[in-house]
Amino acid sequence: MASTLQEQFDTEAQQKDASTLGMWIFLITEVMFFGGMFTAYTVYRRAYSDAFAVASSSLNVTIGAINTAVLLVSSFTMVMAVRAAQLGQRRTLILFLVATLIFGGIFLGVKAYEWNEKFEQHHVPGPSFHLEGVPQQSHAQLFFSLYFAMTGLHALHMVIGVGIISWLIWLARQGRFTAEYNTPVDIAGLYWHFVDIIWIFLFPLLYLIDRHLPK
């Protein structure tokens, strides 16, 4: 088998260590990237809390909760895939990667259904935007601008994740991963969990805030 050690490294352990550290630092840049949007959300939620509460209550909590569960399960299957890779179990690895891919796909499908609903209900920012029960339409519109920007950015990360997992499946089918060399599965797992965690913050901020704001 061809050596998996690149020429700038001395040992496999050093190479794996470097790749893992690189992914963690990349995830820190992602935190800062999403952080800008979370900051904007915080500013406007404080400024227009009533409009945000009404807008938030128009979202479908049941669907959001189901999607959260789907994503959490996908994180579990991803962990199992990493474990299978470490044990060198090729068939199990492929099985769990495919499962992760399916759950990721379900999440995106549900998300697409939700967005489509927004178009039908005129909840998409623009000239035909309308939300019942809000005196200042533009404030509710800001909520939905942020909703689309944040869930859109998250969905984009999911799409990239789905691409990465498909690529891992292709590599795994070729038998590229062994108990000694499985770094790509490992760091793809880090990425996948990170994208999950972003959603864990988005779900309460976007769907559940009306439940603890003064009515």
């Binding site: 840049t29 992602e30 800062m32 990237f33 999403f34 952080g35 800008g36 949007m37 904007a40 406007y44 400024a47 227009y48 920012p125 623009g126 200042q136 533009s138 404030h139 519109q141 800001l142 601008s145 942020l146 689309f148 920007a149 950015l153």
Partner: peptide, 27 residues
């Protein structure tokens, strides 16, 4: 990354006019 997300928001504002930086829309 913060500059990057700021540019994304400027892009959204300029193309879709979402109001995030526009005082006329509460931004």
């Amino acid at each position: 990354p913060v500059l990057a997300v700021t540019i994304v928001l400027v892009f959204c504002e300029r193309v879709f006019h979402i109001g995030i930086f526009d005082p006329a829309l509460g931004g």
